[in-house]
Structures are given as structure tokens and as C-alpha cells.
Amino acid sequence: MAKVTFREDRCKGCELCTTVCPKHIVQMAKDRLNKKGFHPAEVVKQEECIGCAFCATICPDTVIEVEK
């Protein structure tokens, strides 16, 4: 059981986190824009998260926190 939390308003929509998730559960939220005007990244199937922190490791803006 692991959990990732995105601080959406800090996300610049670079999508790097979506390229490294081994479970392919990180996606861009195409249905909304954050304060900055970017589609923020989000996790779609939280229950599949393994807490590897790959997404957080590659995120340039320290948007992501990971708990296990």
C-alpha cells in the first residue's frame, strides 16, 4: 500500500513523471487546469501505486510526495 500526493498548483505540466511510472498510473489531468494554467499530473489508480517514487525523483518542481 502506497500513496502519492501531487501538489497540483506547483505542477508545470512537463509530463516527465508520466514517462517513468512503472505502473503507468500517472497521467495528465486533461479535464482541468491548475492555477498556473497547466494540465497538472495526477495519479489515476492510487491502489496500484507501489511507492517506488520514480515520479517524485524525476519531478523538477518537487510536486510529489510519496508515502508507504
Partner: peptide, 24 residues
């Protein structure tokens, strides 16, 4: 928490462009 902002990095927005690796 297994991954969180380090204390030595101030909790402020970085001015870098999207995807700029300076932030990493």
C-alpha cells in the same frame, strides 16, 4: 513519507521552465 521536499530546499516556486532539470 518515503519521498518529500528536503528541508534545505526552500518551499518556494522555482522560476525554471517546465521540464527544466535545474529543479531536480
Amino acid at each position: 513519507k518515503v519521498f518529500t521536499r528536503p528541508e534545505a530546499l526552500n518551499d518556494v516556486e522555482l522560476h525554471y521552465c517546465p521540464g527544466c532539470t535545474h529543479g531536480i
